[in-house]
Design a protein around this nucleic acid. Sequence first.
DNA 1: GTTAGTGCAAATGATTTGCACCGAA
DNA 2: TTCGGTGCAAATCATTTGCACTAAC
Lengths: 144, 144
Amino acid sequence: MTFQKEIEKKLKDEGYKLTNQRKAILEVLFSHKNHFLSAEEIHLKTQEKYAKTNFSTIYRNLELLEKLDLIHKINLDNNTAHYELIHKKCHHHHIICKGCGKTEPIDFCPLEEILSKLNHKDFSFTDHKFELYGYCSNCQKKLL
Amino acid sequence: MTFQKEIEKKLKDEGYKLTNQRKAILEVLFSHKNHFLSAEEIHLKTQEKYAKTNFSTIYRNLELLEKLDLIHKINLDNNTAHYELIHKKCHHHHIICKGCGKTEPIDFCPLEEILSKLNHKDFSFTDHKFELYGYCSNCQKKLL
DNA sequence: GTTAGTGCAAATGATTTGCACCGAA
DNA sequence: TTCGGTGCAAATCATTTGCACTAAC
């Protein structure tokens, strides 16, 4: 069973219906592994697969997929959320291209090291962000 | 000369006028060092100092102060920008309380270490984010 | 047949902008 | 006096929501 089918099964097992829209969104996310896409980009690309798909449906499904820990959501500096399929099981961070959204995983996480240096007994840590931004080789060329 | 007067002088030297609104905004930022405040919070607190101050004026000045590298701006997960005065000269990151916005600086930056592990000759890095989130002791009590 | 899911259009919330007026230099 | 700055109201942009309808199951 492919990874995509696995996720579709997981959705059904959890009682969610497998609509055409939902399948189209998943297809889009699967065909853009390692890219953070905006909701708008996902909407456009999903419509290529299933033309009727509405923008609200995109948002509602992205919310669901995030809740199920199937996608990562980040808020870029321009105040638009971007989404990426989670296909690596282990905790990792990202290098993110500001031109095209392309990402590369960083397996190394500095959290433990930093916590050991800090000694903050009075602060309860819940989560952390670590992201490197820049331009991939393709986008560097375009900027010239 | 106090740090605040220094910044006011810097603004004037760069040709910006020192309006009552601008002074009030700076006062607010100075009296909330080590706290990320939302534009709304800054607006409310500024109005306590100079009642007439309009919301647009807040945004326009925050934009200016950010351009002049006098404040930090971060986008929290709830899609609202938060702002904090830059009063430490050296590069640092933040521990951020999700309850009250209170921050503590982290002097340690993992960037160099990570870049040395990565070997990404094809990617030009421009900037990075490293933030720890959680609850300060005060806000932990409130959550109980 | 049920009920979750969707489309549509309208609401929301943060932020931005155009324009006429105001006030710091 | 002169621009840069401000207030106001309207516009914008991303996202969310209410509600009637549709389609998985």
